Simulated assay, not measured.
Amino acid sequence: MRSARPLDSTCSSRTNWTQPPALWMQETPTRRRIHRGRFTIAAKHHITIAEVYESELVDIEKAIAHYEQAADYYKGEESNSSANKCLLKVGHYSAQMEQYAKAIEIYEQVATSTMDNPLLKYNAKEYFFKASLCHFIVDELNAKLAIEKYEEMFPAFSDSRELKLLKKLLDAHEEQNSEAFTEAVKDFDSVSRLDQWLTTMLLRIKKTIQGDAGDLK
């Protein structure tokens, strides 16, 4: 097989970026030599590949790998917002695959990077909320300690509906009260509709309550 040439400033405009992802991926060993200014191009192609694995081939592990690579390239261009979008995909799927430690690390990282940004800081509460849910699935005490840390890091989190829900869920879980757990979720959902990811995480927590029926109805 002919070895791929590094992408540099002299790279021909005729480079075949339209070839199938499977073929393009064979050229990725040259990625370490991609010059600054070309990272964004490489990142976009990794996202394209990730989306193919995500929606067509349904290979989430490979999708995660390409979103991670795209995030690294965006960081190389200091495009932190774009990098964070890719990382959030990684966190989303890592949690779904029960890789909670990895998901927590990502959500904390993104929350920390956005909470001091005037335009993005209100999103930080969502990421701390998701990190808290991942902690909660692993261990109730872990969740309590994490929530205390997030409140100290980001005081605005203290007044959020997400934190109020978490505290109600912690109380219900400690009392092994599945009805109170479900009622808290319903109250939250009546104002802020739960998406499929949140529903899945909440069900996983609820199933740890003794005698739970395994639904949120």
Rank of each mutant, 00 (worst) to 15 (best):
S3C: 03
R5K: 11
P6A: 07
T18C: 15
P21F: 08
A22E: 15
W24H: 10
R33Y: 12
G37D: 07
F39E: 09
T40Q: 03
A43L: 04
T48C: 13
I49N: 03
I49M: 11
I49W: 13
L57F: 09
L57H: 12
I64R: 09
Y67I: 03
E68D: 01
Q69L: 12
D72I: 10
Y73H: 06
Y73M: 00
Y73T: 02
S79Q: 09
S79F: 10
N80E: 06
K85E: 07
C86N: 07
Q96D: 03
Q96P: 01
Y100V: 08
A101P: 10
K102R: 14
K102Y: 04
E105K: 14
I106L: 03
I106W: 06
N117G: 02
N123G: 15
E126Y: 08
E126W: 08
Y127R: 03
F128P: 05
F129Q: 02
L133Q: 07
H135T: 04
F136S: 09
E140S: 13
L145K: 10
I147E: 00
K149P: 00
E151P: 05
F157V: 04
K164T: 05
L170C: 07
E174F: 01
E175S: 15
F181D: 00
E183D: 13
V185E: 04
V185R: 00
I205R: 10
I205P: 10
K206M: 11
K207R: 14
K207Q: 13
K207P: 10
A213E: 11
D215H: 10
L216W: 01
L216T: 01
